[in-house]
Write a protein that binds this DNA or RNA. Structure first.
Lengths: 141, 141
DNA sequence: CGAATCTTGTAGCCAAGGCTACATTTCGCA
DNA sequence: TGCGAAATGTAGCCTTGGCTACAAGATTCG
């Protein structure tokens, strides 16, 4: 079996890639937030805010670097690349939209923030468009 | 460190329990569907529909049994316990509600079905209530 | 300037979901 | 009835996110 078996990939993708993408997005978003707030994102701070031990954050950042989303030098802060920034913007925008949508259908603010964290990673672009259109029409009324 | 450190649990919960709960729910829902359709749920069928190899499904079912959600005898089908049935009902009801909500805000049907799969596991009870209320008010108009 | 302290990096282990390979048990049918 | 195919079970490995423990590079300040 030298070529790639689709059925295997499907299984691999299932829970795996789903979770992996969510994780990447969380880290990128957090780095963007910290950079905006402090001018840089330190490993310790990233770990603390995401509620994980620092080696866990180190590993994740290594992955971000591998994927070209971030750069860093030993003992210095972590910064997003242009690609990383773009992803962060997209993620934050989507987060805002999801929260707004939830609020628009009557979800209490605190709950909306919390649930959006989990939900946002599963909102496809088409669903996002629908959300935006719905919010726009509602605003127009 | 003999007592339980909360910060550690938080980390453990993060991606872990999130994914674990979604997985359990997917399996329970699938078993319920298959039982409704064929009178029993076979490991092979469960695995096929969830797109995983059968040993993977076997492991998951073992976990369901451990948690008291299902029962099974070797080389026989898998069945849900009352607790499992209750969870399945809840999961399916929530799935329906999420799909309905998505449709109500303008998401195309096929997309709604797909995205609901990922979203539903992150919808808290309070958000679900809000969805139901929103749908009810909309129906009333 | 040097030591205590704080921040990072590295090594190494665990649990869990996935998979493949191989052993067993059932089942369908000639 | 008996055998081969199909369905399950079991063993064992990989990857990944998490964690702890320990090593090593920054920092701060007396």
């Amino acid at each position: 079996m030298t070529d790639t078996d689709p059925s295997q990939i499907k299984g691999f993708n299932r829970a795996r890639e789903r979770a992996a993408r969510a994780l990447l997005e969380d880290y990128v978003e957090m780095i963007a937030d910290l950079t905006a707030e402090f001018g840089e994102a330190r490993i310790t701070e990233i770990a603390a805010r995401l509620g994980v031990a620092h080696p866990t954050a180190t590993k994740a950042v290594a992955r971000l670097k591998r994927e070209g989303l971030a750069v860093s030098r030993p003992y210095r802060g972590v910064f997003l690349t242009e690609t990383g920034e773009a992803l962060a913007d997209q993620v934050r925008e989507r987060h805002r939209t999801v929260v707004a949508l939830l609020r628009a259908v009557g979800v209490p603010e605190e709950v909306a923030e919390i649930d959006a964290e989990g939900i946002e990673h599963h909102v496809s672009s088409r669903t996002l468009e629908a959300f935006e259109a719905f919010l726009a029409s509602k605003a127009g009324k």
